[in-house]
Design a protein around this nucleic acid. Sequence first.
DNA 1: ACTATAGATAGGAATAGTACTAATTAGGAG
DNA 2: CTCCTAATTAGTACTATTCCTATCTATAGT
Lengths: 151, 151
Amino acid sequence: MDVEEITQQLKEHACRLTPQRRMIVQALLASSEPLTAQQVHSSVSRTFPNISFDTVYRNLGLLSRLGIVNRINLKVKFNCRFELAQEHRHHFICLSCGSSFPVSYCPFEHYSSKAQTDTGFRVVDHAFEVYGYCAGCNVGNHVDLASAVNP
Amino acid sequence: MDVEEITQQLKEHACRLTPQRRMIVQALLASSEPLTAQQVHSSVSRTFPNISFDTVYRNLGLLSRLGIVNRINLKVKFNCRFELAQEHRHHFICLSCGSSFPVSYCPFEHYSSKAQTDTGFRVVDHAFEVYGYCAGCNVGNHVDLASAVNP
DNA sequence: ACTATAGATAGGAATAGTACTAATTAGGAG
DNA sequence: CTCCTAATTAGTACTATTCCTATCTATAGT
C-alpha cells in the first residue's frame, strides 16, 4: 500500500486529492503503530503549520468510511487510534497501557450472512476488538475492575 | 434483572449503593432502548436536580466494567449508548438513524482461546458490532460513503 | 489556458466527555 | 445509636471532538 494506491481509491469515490489529505495518509504510512488523531495532527503540522484539527478529524473519518483506515480502540473514549487498513484485521487492546496488537481472526467470515438479509439490513461494516491486559502489564498486577481508570 | 439483583452485584465488588447509582440503574431498567449518557443524566435529573454529568459518566463506566451494562455504538464517538446486559449479546447499528438491534451471535464463542494464552494476554472483554442501514433507512437511499455524516 | 463550481479548508465557537478536589455520605465497628 | 473512614459526589476546570461559515482551490468542461 502506497500513497498512489490510496489516492486512486479517493478518486474512485470522487474525492479530491488535496495536499493536506496526502500528508495525513503519509503520516499514517510512515508510522508503524496506530496513531491518535492528535498525533496525526501534530505530524502533519510540521508541513502545514495552519492545518486545523477539524481537517484531520474530518479526513480520518472519511478514510475510515472508505475502508482505507481502521479506527481502533473503540471502547476507550478519546485516544481512539487510526491505522492504514493494509489487510483486514482486528485488534487486541491493552486496557492498562493502551497498546494494540493485531488479532488474526475475523468473526465476520464465520458469521452467516443469512440472518442479516432476513431482517432487511444492509451491512457495510463491522467491528471486533478484544480487551484485556498484555503480558507486560499483566505480571503481578491484580487489577480491580471497579477501580480501573479509563474505559 | 431487577434493581436488587444489580445492587447485589455492586456489593460483591465492594461498591457502595448510593441513591444516585440506584437511579442510574433504574433509568436503564425503565427504558426499552439503549440510552446515551446524556439521556440517563436528564432522566436522573428529575430526581436529583443537582447530579453532575461526571457522576453519570463515572457510574456508567463502572457498571460497564463490571459487565452490568453494555456500551454500544462504539464506532461513533459521542452518542455511544448504554443498556443493561440482561444477556450477553451484540448489536447491529444503523448508520443512518442510529437505532440498534440485538444480534444473536457472539464471535467469542467461536474464537479459540488458544491464541490468547500463547501471547500472554489476559482477556477480560470483547466488542463486536455490525454497522449498516436498517430496513427503514435502506429503501431508496443510495447512501454515498464519502459524504456520510457521522461515523 | 480559462472559468465555473462542487467540494475542501482554516479558524473560531459549541458541545460531549473527562479530571480534579473539597465536601458529603454509605456502611461497618464499637 | 453514634462515630469513623474511605468511597462517592457536586461543582468546577479542562480537554478532545465536532459544528459552522466565509473563503479558497482542485477538477471538469469549455
